[in-house]
């Protein structure tokens, strides 16, 4: 079984929704993750708060951001265990983030610690 990271890209919820709405999203996210964990397929995850986000550029210039394309900012991730990328994609389809138009969940296989790809 491999591990896949599901990366959520979406707008900063605090900018577009009420605290109550965010509460609802949080609960939906917890239910979604709980369902994956109940299958013993959850391996970890975190939310990435938008405040105090910084980008360090190649010339070591530091900017606030990365808020160029607001819908493409990484807002969080989870890591799941799956037999194939297709199974991981099925998990991703349930992610509440996808309720927002333009939001995405990127699915990537995590390299094994020995550096191999499979």
């Amino acid at each position: 079984m491999d591990e896949f990271i599901l990366i959520f890209r979406h707008q900063d919820g605090n900018k577009v929704a009420s605290p109550e709405q965010i509460q609802v999203w949080m609960k939906q996210t917890m239910d979604w993750i709980g369902g994956i964990a109940a299958q013993n397929k959850f391996a970890g995850g975190n939310g990435l708060p938008f405040d105090e986000a910084r980008v360090v550029h190649h010339n070591r210039v530091v900017t606030n951001g990365p808020f160029g394309e607001i819908k493409e900012t990484i807002g969080g991730y989870i890591i799941v265990k799956a037999d194939s990328v297709e199974e991981a994609v099925e998990f991703a389809k349930g992610c509440p983030v996808l309720q927002g138009e333009g939001n995405t969940v990127e699915v990537r296989r995590i390299a094994k610690s020995d550096g191999t790809n499979s």
């Binding site: 917890m30 239910d31 709980g34 964990a37 299958q39």
Partner: peptide
Amino acid sequence: ILQLYNRLLQLEYSPIAALNRTFAL
């Protein structure tokens, strides 16, 4: 109870917690 099971399963999977979580759902 559902939210507590969601968190419990993230910390540590067990079949009985998975079943109880589904009942709570």
